Simulated assay, not measured.
Amino acid sequence: MDVAVLTEVPIIPVLRKMPYEKSASIIQALVDGGIRSIEITMESEGAELMIQEAKGNFGDQIIVGAGTVVTKEDCRRAIDAGAQFVVSPILDEEVVRYAASQDVPMIPGVFTPSEMVKATQCGAPMVKVFPASVLGPEFVKDVKGPLQDIPIMCTGGITRETAKAYLDAGAVAVGAGGSLLKKDFISNGDYEGITKEARKWLSMISD
């Protein structure tokens, strides 16, 4: 898979520890809201089954990735489950190389320009600045000067109000966690609320 497809709709919801029994409804709500890629974190209960079922139920509507992939074993399990891309909060060169050997894009977490370059040298087609809120959009803008050829996704503390600033600064996508998938929506089964929130995010970045 070419990671460029993740940038076509550059909001990537992160499904972290979502209840398995609600996962299909959550994903349907995101699809209805215009989302075209999701990240299911590997520490979630039933993560592999969620990935498998998401691929089966929504494979022609959404790109399914795995997040919180911190070991080679995590990566193997995610890919075996059908993850089309994998994301990590850290840079582990062995994991990046393993994913590349399986022809699955790996997006490792980075925090410095040196880590960005090292990640691409290991075969990462994109990097994830994490936690992005600590560094802010100005960091992305500044680092894109000398490292303009490295695609950057930003995750961590991104809100609907700040997402556009990161994209305008040069990020090609942003990961959205609890600020999009609000706890109240999940606990109350308010899937229409999730759909409306996703639309608000996409409207905000298109303004």
Rank of each mutant, 00 (worst) to 15 (best):
L6F: 01
T7M: 10
R16Y: 06
R16C: 02
R16I: 00
I27A: 08
A29S: 11
V31T: 05
V31C: 11
D32R: 14
D32I: 09
G34Q: 03
G34D: 10
R36F: 00
R36Q: 13
S37G: 07
M42G: 08
S44V: 10
E45A: 12
G46D: 07
G46H: 07
E48V: 02
L49T: 12
L49V: 04
M50C: 14
I51K: 13
E53A: 08
A54F: 02
K55P: 04
N57T: 06
V64W: 11
A66I: 00
A66F: 00
A66R: 06
T68I: 00
T68L: 04
E73G: 04
E73H: 04
C75W: 00
R77N: 10
A81H: 03
V86G: 06
V86L: 12
V87F: 09
P89N: 14
D92C: 04
A100G: 01
S101H: 10
V104W: 04
P108N: 02
F111L: 12
P113L: 05
S114F: 02
E115G: 13
C122W: 00
C122K: 00
G123T: 07
G123P: 14
A124S: 05
K128W: 11
A132R: 06
V134M: 12
G136T: 08
V140E: 11
K141F: 01
K144G: 12
P151F: 09
M153I: 13
T155Q: 07
T155P: 09
G157H: 03
T159L: 11
R160I: 14
Y166H: 02
L167G: 12
D168E: 15
D168W: 03
A169P: 06
A169V: 08
G175H: 09
G177V: 03
G177T: 06
K183Q: 15
I186W: 11
N188E: 13
G189S: 09
E192G: 10
E192L: 12
K196P: 06
E197W: 03
A198Q: 01
L202N: 01
S203G: 04
I205R: 09
S206C: 11
D207R: 14
